[in-house]
């Protein structure tokens, strides 16, 4: 019994040390963001600020808030549209399988693993051609299209758990493809929509490559603006850390309140589910 309790305390000690390692960047980010620039010296890096100074938040907010709003205008419609499209695709690919449906599904899935660099040059040519280059609607379009594989995968796996008998008996009762979707599938996929919605929200909010290549200055989403903060001559670490926190806040809040669904999406995204 003594051996067991020693082993248990060791286990907790290890877990606490590792937790501190994972939390350290957050701690340093918080205290740095709350210090005035002259207190950010080599020797005081880990010390708490002498007095709370929110001016770096004010500065970060001034510089980032237009881009923050861009991200909102981007992420809300893009998330809704790609969830809807994924739900329809998942419905067809799980409940209305036609010949070759599984291979088409696999071919669609490949799209979520490609490095987006490999489609970027034609994509930008295309967006210029149709007048969507350097616009938020252009970015929405891009995220909806390249979101098809992951949202289809998540909904297809989700709908696979809806028993076939339910669909069959609805068909016998004379319900068609729309009625079944509307009255059986949609009411049962609230969790699915939450999981996919959170997943797309987080991914699109955090995305950088499309954002930095498709938009310039006033159209840029938050992550590009955050990256640009560090491009200035003198690095104001306090403003940068405040900016990083501001940029991370929406996804962090979603994680804190709906983390269970986030992890579900994470596991669903690993194909085999």
């Amino acid at each position: 019994m003594a051996v067991r309790s020693v082993y248990r305390s060791l286990l907790y000690a290890l877990l606490i040390i590792l937790s501190l390692f994972y939390l350290m960047p957050v701690y340093v980010m918080l205290i740095t963001s709350l210090k005035p620039l002259d207190q950010i010296t080599l020797s005081q890096m880990w010390e708490l600020p002498h007095s709370l100074d929110f001016s770096s938040y004010q500065q970060a907010f001034e510089r980032l808030s237009p881009n923050f709003m861009n991200s909102i205008y981007l992420v809300v419609p893009a998330t809704l549209l790609s969830a809807l499209l994924g739900s329809l695709n998942g419905y067809v690919l799980s409940k209305w399988k036609f010949k070759g449906a599984d291979w088409i599904f696999t071919a669609i899935l490949f799209g979520m693993f490609i490095p987006y660099q490999s489609i970027l040059i034609p994509l930008i040519q295309f967006l210029r051609e149709v007048g969507l280059y350097n616009t938020i609607p252009g970015l929405i379009f891009v995220h909806v299209v390249y979101g098809i594989p992951i949202t289809t995968l998540m909904f297809r796996n989700f709908y696979a758990s809806i028993p076939e008998e339910m669909i069959e008996s609805a068909k016998i009762d004379g319900a068609g493809i729309f009625k079944i979707y509307q009255h059986i599938i949609v009411p049962l996929s609230i969790t699915g929509f939450v999981v996919v919605g959170i997943w797309q929200f987080t991914n699109i909010w955090n995305e950088f490559l499309f954002a930095v290549t498709i938009t310039t200055s006033s159209q840029q989403p938050i992550m590009v603006a955050l990256q640009n903060l560090s491009g200035s001559q003198i690095v104001q670490w306090n403003v940068q850390m405040a900016g990083a926190l501001l940029a991370a806040l929406p996804t962090l809040l979603v994680y804190i309140f709906l983390g269970k669904f986030f992890v579900k999406g994470l596991l669903a995204g690993s194909v085999k589910g």
Binding site: P25, M45, F208, Q227
Partner: peptide, 30 residues
């Protein structure tokens, strides 16, 4: 939650934080 939350962050945010943490002029190096 402590081990999972960094996944909700953007790689850009992670980059900015760790650039500061591992900066040779400051950070952990001191």
């Amino acid at each position: 939650n402590i081990f999972f939350f960094p996944m909700a962050l953007s790689f850009v945010v992670t980059g900015v934080i760790w650039q500061w943490l591992l900066n040779p002029a400051t950070g952990v190096n001191l």
